[in-house]
Amino acid sequence: MTTGSVTSAKTSRPVPVPPARAPRRRSSRRTWGGRGHLVAAGLLTLAFVSPIYLTIVNAFKSQAQILDNPAAPPAPPTMRNITDALGRSDKIIQIGLTNSAVTVVVSVLLIIPIGAALSFWLTRRPARFRRTVLAFFSAGLMIPPAVVLLPTIRILTFLHLDHTYQGLILANVGGGYLSFAVFVYSGFLRAIPSEIIEAAGIDGAGLLRIWWTILMPLLRPATATVAIFLSLWIWNDFMNPQFILGPLHGQTITTGLYVSLGQYSTNYAQLFGVMFLAAVIPVAGYLALQKQFIAGLTTGATK
Rank of each mutant, 00 (worst) to 15 (best):
T299N: 11
A41G: 14
T78H: 00
T3W: 06
S179C: 02
L232Q: 13
F48N: 12
L230N: 12
S186G: 12
P16G: 04
I143D: 13
P241V: 03
R29P: 10
N81C: 05
G176T: 01
D237R: 10
A117T: 00
M239A: 11
G167E: 02
P221Y: 03
F183S: 08
L189Y: 13
V104E: 08
T11R: 09
Y268F: 08
T11E: 06
I253W: 09
S8L: 11
R209C: 06
I66P: 01
F243E: 07
G187W: 13
V173I: 09
P23T: 02
R24K: 02
A41C: 15
A279I: 07
I82M: 04
D237H: 05
A284H: 10
Y185K: 08
Q63C: 00
M79Y: 02
K291W: 13
I244V: 01
P247K: 03
T78S: 09
S119A: 13
F238C: 10
L215G: 01
V102T: 04
L122H: 06
A41D: 14
R209I: 04
A295S: 07
W212K: 12
M275S: 10
S260F: 09
L257M: 12
G300A: 12
T255K: 02
L109C: 10
K291H: 13
A146G: 15
T254L: 06
G256D: 01
I112D: 09
V280M: 09
L156P: 07
F243C: 00
R30H: 14
L289I: 04
T83Y: 08
P145T: 08
T3F: 09
